[in-house]
Design a protein around this nucleic acid. Structure first.
Lengths: 336, 336
DNA sequence: CTGTTAGCGCGTTCAC
DNA sequence: GTGAACGCGCTAACAG
């Protein structure tokens, strides 16, 4: 660990290896052929002097920052954390570093984040969810490649990594129907959020396809937070609504729901069956464990990172499918 | 939004404002006095041309990257996520950007992360938890300031932001004792982890101070993951151990514990009282809601960021206290 | 294949 | 106060 004042430049290793600085630059970037002996000499010098390239000089000269921005929405859901984790994983063994900024699901903040990233001259960005509009994204993509995760944007799909929320909700609802349920309530997420809407639609379609009338009075609109699941149940009872099952747009609300039910002395799944969405870690350890729809969050994160890398390297990227999987646990029971 | 090929340099705004580049540099950095009129002229030019400083050039010339590295441990706990959130929050309105890398609680990976950050020439780093040894940290701190969160390192405390785990565990245990419990089991975390050890010690001391004998057979060693809480309960029963309360070293294990109890038909809190640690979001929505010890995670994150900033600005930093708060919920009941 | 040279955009002495 | 000139460390033409 010769850490001598970290002032080692390519000039020094050039001298040490008795070659010119450009030769050094060449072996370091691998952009051109260099005689084997000189090649080794340089590598030896690099090791001997414990050389560390200066990112600034490199960036200044090449125009590349070897950095890609990540706009996350660090709020209200373990789902997004899992995606971030997947992204970080892929960055681990790549020459790129992630520059993470928080968008907080606020358009204004996300735009500021975009500016920050632009100032930092990132080579590309990954947008996780959020509200940034298509045009903003496209404009940015003009000069810096953009990839979007966990969001399906019309007219930009080739750059989006997402899962079919409609189908997933359809499947979850169908599962309840097949278990004999006919009065299935749905607690939706924020309808401004596309995912929430798609899940509602999937629920609706499954009902229709099973010849069960879709009833507005079985729908309660939540906001993805646990508290709203709790309130939703109260709303249902206030309406004097009967139901034998509830499909929640996410696990967090399902947790709130389960708690509300518990407080009213209603047993899950004996009295009411319950299905959530996201398979967040705690779901498996609820009492009873929650049946839920698991989106491949980490996998999607990995795909996103892989996608942006292939764009940066101008390599082809073969799209992947990311489908949700229903995780059946004790919170659902057959209706006799 | 004049986004003209983003080639605007200080030279151009110098021309536009009819001054020299050094004057421009001066008003931009505010390091020297400039005549009011020129000052304004420059500002106007900056706005008119939508100037954006080039971080690389700036970094090259100044030696500052305006970036601080953050080593997180993105695994197994919402607690660390909350800290990260707090950190990001403070970065938001600072000229610095965070460079986040994942340490995964693996010493080797953390060391690599340190190297990455060094190569990126960060101006400082925040280490969240992890296993990096004191000497490594101190060596790094020699040239780049280091702040550690959620970890208390002997001989480096002035740079650590942490909470008193011993005291918190003591209080939690005492709460159970005062509720009349005498046979209190403890499910510990990984003992290699200082926090786990401190919590165990706090538990022990509370017992001793209340004249209740500390019994090894009431201790089960877990690993912080929910699954281990579940297994711990099984272990207790295998030992044929009786107990009226359980104190878990974190919420995740408490969740596993609660599930195991539920499956055995044991009611919480009617038959057994339960206390966790961390107050992770889902805890409030368990059935029944979990009593837990809440560490000020986000606050600690914010403090850490504030601390590193004040070091970078060579400003004094006044340390803060970060104490845990017991959140009493339905999972504990009095023993008659 | 290799060495020489000219910037990349900005901070920072210096003289004025 | 202000401007001119140099250099930060490296990449990318350019000649050989």
């Amino acid at each position: 660990m010769t850490n001598q004042r970290e002032k080692i430049t390519i000039q020094q290793i050039a001298d040490y290896a008795d070659v010119s600085i450009s030769t050094v630059s060449r072996v370091l970037s691998g952009n051109a052929k260099v005689a084997a002996d000189k090649h080794e000499a340089v590598l030896a010098a690099v090791k001997a002097l414990n050389y560390r390239p200066n990112m600034f000089a490199r960036g200044l000269a090449s125009g590349q920052s070897m950095t890609v921005g990540v706009i996350t929405q660090h709020i209200s859901s373990p789902f997004y954390d899992a995606i971030t984790k997947g992204i970080l994983e892929v960055f681990e063994d790549s020459p790129y570093s992630p520059l993470i900024v928080d968008g907080q699901w606020k358009l204004e903040i996300e735009k500021r984040a975009l500016h920050t990233l632009q100032n930092r001259q990132v080579d590309g960005i990954i947008v996780v969810g959020g509200n940034l509009e298509l045009e903003t994204l496209k404009a940015f993509d003009q000069h810096t490649p953009v990839v979007v995760v966990a969001r399906e944007i019309e007219d930009f799909k080739e750059r989006c990594i997402y899962t079919d929320n409609f189908q997933a909700a359809y499947n979850a609802t169908q599962f309840l129907i097949r278990a004999g349920h006919k009065e299935i309530a749905h607690i939706s997420g924020l309808l401004e959020h596309p995912d929430a809407n798609l899940r509602l639609q999937g629920y609706k379609q499954a009902l229709i396809d099973a010849n069960i009338p879709y009833r507005e009075d079985l729908i309660v609109h939540g906001n993805f937070l646990p508290q709203s699941g709790l309130l939703a149940v109260e709303a249902l009872f206030t309406r004097n609504q009967t139901f034998s099952a509830i499909f929640c747009a996410n696990d967090q609300m399902a947790m709130g729901t389960q708690l509300a039910l518990y407080r009213r002395g209603i047993r899950v799944p004996a009295d009411v069956s319950l299905i959530g969405f996201d398979d967040q870690p705690a779901s498996a350890f609820m009492t009873p464990p929650l049946t839920t729809m698991r989106p491949p969050a980490e996998e999607m994160g990995r795909s996103a990172a892989a996608h942006i890398f292939s764009i940066l390297k101008k390599m082809p990227y073969e799209a992947q499918d990311h489908t949700c999987e229903l995780i059946v646990r004790e919170s659902v029971s057959r209706v006799r």
